[in-house]
């Protein structure tokens, strides 16, 4: 599960070696900043969350049981830090939905394959906080609605409806971008 390099890094970090901490940070920071960016409101919030997350990682590294990969563990720490940050700054407000929006319409993801990852992430990032968090947790991280409900202290139905709304909104944004690209290309051809 754990690579030899990670094993050495963990040993170094546990011994309080700054160089080992720096190497571990350099290795995982870009990916973790990407994770934090998906949850955070702004880029500097993401940077803050990532820094706080690494402080926790270094402080609690002895609690890492090596059951999963180090990356998965760090990612989990980052997600928890992000959720705490959003809760503390009251940026995570979810209105309990009375009507649960069910969106079972098929989404033809093939039309979105041309969209740049950066733009896709920007679209997720631009979603309202509640939608964004639930979409991230359910669709990307693979949490169940029950787990999301427990973590965010909401009901399962709220989680479901937030996800459905997030999906609809994201779809609209992606459609708009696709259409805009096509429109721009058409104009350029003309």
């Amino acid at each position: 599960m754990i690579t030899l390099q990670d094993e050495e890094l963990i040993k170094g970090c546990l011994a309080g070696k700054r160089a080992a901490q720096n190497r571990l940070f350099d290795k995982y920071a870009p990916k973790m900043l990407g994770v934090c960016f998906r949850y955070a409101q702004t880029e500097h919030d993401a940077e803050d969350i990532m820094q706080d997350g690494f402080v926790k990682v270094f402080a609690n590294l002895e609690k890492f049981r090596k059951e999963a990969s180090l990356e998965t563990w760090i990612k989990r720490v980052m997600i928890n830090t992000a959720l705490n940050f959003l809760k503390a700054t009251q940026k995570l407000r979810m209105e309990a939905d009375i009507d649960v929006v069910e969106n079972n319409a098929d989404i033809a993801t093939s039309q979105y394959h041309d969209i740049d990852t950066q733009v896709l992430m920007q679209c997720i990032h631009s979603l309202p906080a509640g939608y964004r968090v639930v979409l991230n947790m359910f669709a990307i991280e693979g949490f169940s609605h029950k787990e999301i409900a427990e973590q965010l202290e909401i009901t399962e139905s709220t989680s479901r409806s937030q996800f459905s709304r997030a999906k609809i909104l994201l779809q609209k944004k992606l459609d708009a971008i696709t259409k805009y690209d096509k429109h721009y290309e058409r104009r350029r051809v003309q």
Binding site: P30, L33, G34, L120, N136, A139, I140
Partner: peptide
């Protein structure tokens, strides 16, 4: 979800 997950896994930002 898989589409989003794949893209998210490859997404990195330089600190």
């Amino acid at each position: 979800n898989n589409f989003l997950r794949e893209r998210a896994d490859s997404f990195e930002l330089k600190p």
